[in-house]
């Protein structure tokens, strides 16, 4: 899975990637720098239910940015610093997201993904 996000994670300024299911469960997470809190400690169900209509979103905060994208598995959230090349991140998502599909029954985390 980390391999799938390799190009995104290699973009300068990317701090991490989290893939949430539509119910808010963390399906995958990887961070390139320390984060204040593990996203698995929160219940995200209501949050993702409230943004279920959103297909894509760019969010600019005072001290960073986030890119949110709906996939077939759930929502991909990419955390980055304010200077990260977001257009490149979006394009990387265009390229990789077709590979991110529910797979047929198999064991382990791999059952969620198809490359």
């Amino acid at each position: 899975m980390k391999d799938l996000f390799k190009d995104i994670l290699s973009v300068e300024g990317i701090k991490g990637v989290v893939l949430f299911s539509f119910k808010g469960e963390v399906l995958f997470k990887t961070f390139l720098s320390a984060i204040p809190e593990d996203p698995e400690t929160r219940d995200w169900a209501l949050f993702f239910d409230s943004i279920k209509k959103v297909g894509e979103s760019d969010l600019i905060f005072e001290d960073g940015r986030m890119y949110l994208r709906k996939t077939e598995l759930g929502f991909l959230v990419i955390l980055m610093n304010s200077t990260a090349p977001v257009a490149l991140v979006r394009l990387n998502c265009d390229v990789l997201l077709p590979s991110l599909k529910p797979a047929k029954i198999s064991k382990g985390l791999g059952r969620f993904f198809k490359r």
């Binding site: 984060i35 204040p36 809190e37 996203p39 929160r42 949050f47 409230s50 943004i51 209509k53 959103v54 297909g55 894509e56 979103s57 760019d58 969010l59 600019i60 905060f61 005072e62 001290d63 960073g64 940015r65 986030m66 949110l68 959230v77 955390l79």
Partner: peptide, 26 residues
């Protein structure tokens, strides 16, 4: 409401207040 929800993400990752949002709702 949507902006308020999105602000939660920023608060969780401690990256400050939300400044602007682009959104595609289909």
């Amino acid at each position: 409401d949507l902006i308020s929800q999105m602000s939660r993400l920023g608060a969780f990752f401690r990256i400050g207040k939300i400044k602007s949002v682009f959104v595609d709702i289909g």
